[in-house]
Simulated scan of single mutants.
Amino acid sequence: MSFQNPWLLLVAAIIVAGLGFAYHRLQRKRTNALAAAGLTPANPRRAGLRRHLPPLLFLAALGFLLVGLARPQATVPVPRASGTVVLAFDVSNSMAAKDIAPARLAAAQAAAIEFVKAQPDTVDIGVVAFGQGAQTTQLPSNDHVSTIAAINRLTIAGGTSLGQAILGSLTVITGQPASVAEDAPPTDLGYWPSATIVLLSDGEDTGGPDPVAAAELAATAGVHIETIGIGTVNGSIIEVDGFQVATSLNEELLAEIAETTTGSYHRAEDAQSLGAIYKSLDLRITLEDEFIELTSVIVAIAVLLLTVGALLMINWFGRIL
């Protein structure tokens, strides 16, 4: 704890000590005068409590008020959602399937927008769209209005590369290219424990790099991945370039990606459950120091002491002073 006007503490101590000493001298003279007159209370302990307690409460209240003038303040750790979240959307052709109404991608967009609206400005949110490659459509920012606009702009096209989705998201988080090439040493991305990738996909992977290897790179960087399976196990039929193609949810791969980074896999078989999943996502909770002024608390204690002292005076003596 610190004080904006610490010198007032010395003033408070002098005033309270002086009033306490004066009260003691006054009571001593009063006791001596009563004793000289041959007057003594029948129950000295009870009489002393009644006589001294209210004034002492008033004196303590004065002390708290004077301390309040010194403007006490403190820095306390406050838990809150914080860090960076990258929403990685699968925009491949299979996300046009309508096994989740109105369609997989549309349902994911609607639920994601509600998720963004619910986040405090301490959470920076970015958007990555991935098909065969990954494209950053919104850098992580606390400008959630721009994030929502980026989500609304997503359109469907091409195949699916979950590995590219993870690497693209890591690049956005760390600010440096992420890769898992077999003929190159692992990329050193640093350590980002406050970052989370939310991967929204039906799990159908149609091209490299290896998504599990990419997840291992994320785990090394301290980034955990929450995967959300969009679609149903039974799947649906979509039309691509005049051909009918069957598409279904690949839960095994999505679960493996999440587990590699100590994240969790969530299945969303309809729009309602998808919205519930967003509310339960395991985002990083950090302790952030928050500066607070304690003057109001100190004054409240002083008012409480004054009130108690006044009530005791009225109850015992029928008056306040």
Rank of each mutant, 00 (worst) to 15 (best):
R104D: 11
I320T: 14
N32Q: 15
G275Y: 00
L287K: 12
P211A: 03
L287M: 14
G38H: 10
E256V: 00
G131C: 00
D124A: 06
K279P: 01
G275E: 06
D289P: 05
A271K: 13
V11W: 13
I230T: 07
S296L: 12
I113R: 13
P186A: 08
N152C: 02
V145Q: 15
P77K: 04
N93A: 13
A221H: 02
F64P: 01
V299R: 10
A268N: 06
V299I: 15
W7S: 15
I257V: 07
A37K: 15
P102A: 01
L199S: 03
A149W: 10
L154W: 04
L49E: 01
A12H: 10
L87F: 07
D99M: 07
A268H: 05
F89C: 04
F21Y: 13
P72A: 05
T295K: 09
A213I: 06
M313S: 11
A101L: 14
G175P: 06
A111Y: 06
E290F: 01
E251P: 04
I197Y: 06
V233P: 10
T247R: 14
E290M: 02
Q164R: 10
L170P: 12
A246P: 13
K29V: 01
L162G: 00
F64M: 11
G275V: 01
S82E: 13
L39T: 12
W7R: 11
S248N: 12
G163N: 02
P120L: 00
D210N: 15
L253Y: 08
L200P: 02
L9V: 04
T31E: 14
L321C: 10
A246E: 10
G222A: 08
R104K: 15
D90L: 02
F58V: 03
P44F: 10
T136Y: 08
A118P: 04
T171D: 09
A258I: 09
A218G: 15
R25L: 15
Q4G: 14
A22Q: 09
R284C: 01
V198Q: 06
G48M: 08
A300F: 15
I257S: 00
G20T: 04
A195Q: 01
L311Y: 08
A268S: 08
P120Q: 00
P177A: 04
A181L: 14
S194C: 01
P102Y: 00
A150F: 06
T247S: 14
S194Q: 15
G263E: 04
S146I: 09
G159T: 13
L39P: 03
V212S: 02
L253T: 09
G126S: 05
L283H: 00
L34V: 03
R45K: 13
V76R: 13
Y191D: 05
A112L: 11
R71N: 11
A12R: 10
P186W: 09
S161D: 12
